[in-house]
Amino acid sequence: MSGLKELVQGAEFIAKSMGVTLKTLVTEAPNTVQYPEEPVAMYPRFRGLHELRRYEDGMERCIGCSLCEAACPTGAIYVLAAENDPSNPVSPGERHAEVYEVNLMRCIFCGDCMRACPTEAIVLGHNFELAQYDRVDLILDKEALLNPPTPNVIIRPDA
């Protein structure tokens, strides 16, 4: 007769757990994010796609010092600095980055570049949408870095 007892017991458990499910179904909002229709919130310290920041007046913060390049453990950054044209400077002071590239095929998102930067120019943002159809598009140039698709820059106290 143990078979019948087990059956009743089993039904009881199922009813109990389904009860939780049914209760939650009506009392709580769904947790699933409708990505990509809906945005995904990242933790503040998440390290995603790089961005190059500007000062409020529009000047580039980067001075082309190449310290990020030096700090990068994977050789993902390339910087070529140049003199600012005094009549049309792109950054405060004499020096700016003429070429700045991040190679996302190499980057491991460690954030060392951000830590090395003396002007808080390069930061890792929250954008994680890195997929591309073409490898070449995985190399971000200065243009792309200065104009991220979704500017979402935070300065990290821990950085």
């Binding site: 082309g64 190449s66 390049e69 030096a70 600095a81 003199e83 020096r95």
Partner: peptide, 9 residues
């Protein structure tokens, strides 16, 4: 060659 190189590279 001002600003055109970093010695370590």
């Amino acid at each position: 060659s001002r600003f055109r190189y970093r010695p370590w590279r």
